[in-house]
Design a protein around this nucleic acid. Structure first.
Length: 250
DNA sequence: CAACAGGCGGGAC
DNA sequence: GTCCCGCCTGTT
């Protein structure tokens, strides 16, 4: 596992490097500091909190080395991508936060996404990630002050639907990937790509394979005859992360 | 200053 | 179903 790689992999927007080289992560109503020294990690939390939150958050039960070894020996591109991003993990992040975060991410850039989220958190929830109630209660007027652009109307609708019970966020956890994806896509402002990101980072459906403009280009360039989806079935999302992160360096 | 950024909704067909 | 266009707004 590599914190630098995870922080730069574009799946979490509330993880920041601090002055002393450690990382600060805000999630699940708390803030964690982690210092990495090679393969040694120092967590700022209690043993109890580590077991209840962070062990799962960092997906520590998954054997990524084994997954890396399953890559086709003839696929030099994927091998290089996996080697380059071997410290990346598919995080288990808060479901609600992922829904709103990736709705914001559409047709947007990372600095602005982070800024919008930070302003939302500070303005609506005293630094924590705002609940559906907190977002809905401010109305569109409040939300429009956060640099969300046209996405504000998607977000207020999602928050309102969640508050009035029209949309059941927790119910997504009881669905398989296909059903969760379809249910998410039925919501205003959520399309195929955002639904896949929520499935992958919020529901840990590791088979989800979000295709954005970068992945689309990669597939066209390196897999003109088609990506070997069948070979990596069950953990396609990890391959997607390797390719996405590898592409970011350029 | 035009173009772009981890897409999506809406209308045309 | 696919294709195409317009879209908020901060940066470069």
């Amino acid at each position: 596992m590599d914190l630098e790689q995870i922080a730069r992999s574009g799946q979490c927007f509330r993880m920041n490097k601090t002055e002393d080289g450690s990382y600060a992560i805000k999630a699940f109503g708390t803030e964690l500091r982690i210092l990495q020294d090679g393969s040694e990690f120092t967590f700022s939390c209690s043993e109890e909190e580590f077991e209840s939150i962070w062990h799962n958050y960092f997906d520590l039960s998954t054997d990524y080395n084994k997954i890396k070894q399953s890559i086709d020996a003839d696929d030099s591109y994927l091998l290089a991508a996996a080697e380059y991003g071997s410290g990346v993990r598919i995080l288990n992040q808060d479901l609600w936060e992922m829904i709103i975060t990736f709705m914001i991410s559409q047709n947007n850039n990372i600095p602005r996404i982070k800024k919008s989220i930070e302003v939302m958190c500070d303005t609506l929830a005293d630094g924590a990630f705002p609940s559906a109630e907190q977002i809905a209660s401010g109305g569109i007027e409040k939300l429009s002050e956060m640099g969300l652009g046209y996405r504000d109307k998607y977000i207020i609708k999602m928050a309102q639907n969640t508050v009035n019970g029209e949309f059941d966020v927790e119910g997504l956890r009881h669905m398989d990937y296909k059903n969760a994806h379809r249910t998410l896509m039925s919501q205003y402002g959520i399309g195929k790509k955002v639904a896949d990101c929520v499935c992958l980072f919020g529901l840990h459906h590791v088979d989800a394979f979000p295709v954005d403009v970068h992945i689309k280009k990669i597939l066209e360039e390196h897999y003109p005859q088609g990506f070997p989806y069948e070979r990596y079935k069950g953990y396609l999302g990890i391959m997607q992360q390797y390719m996405f992160y590898y592409d970011l360096k350029n």
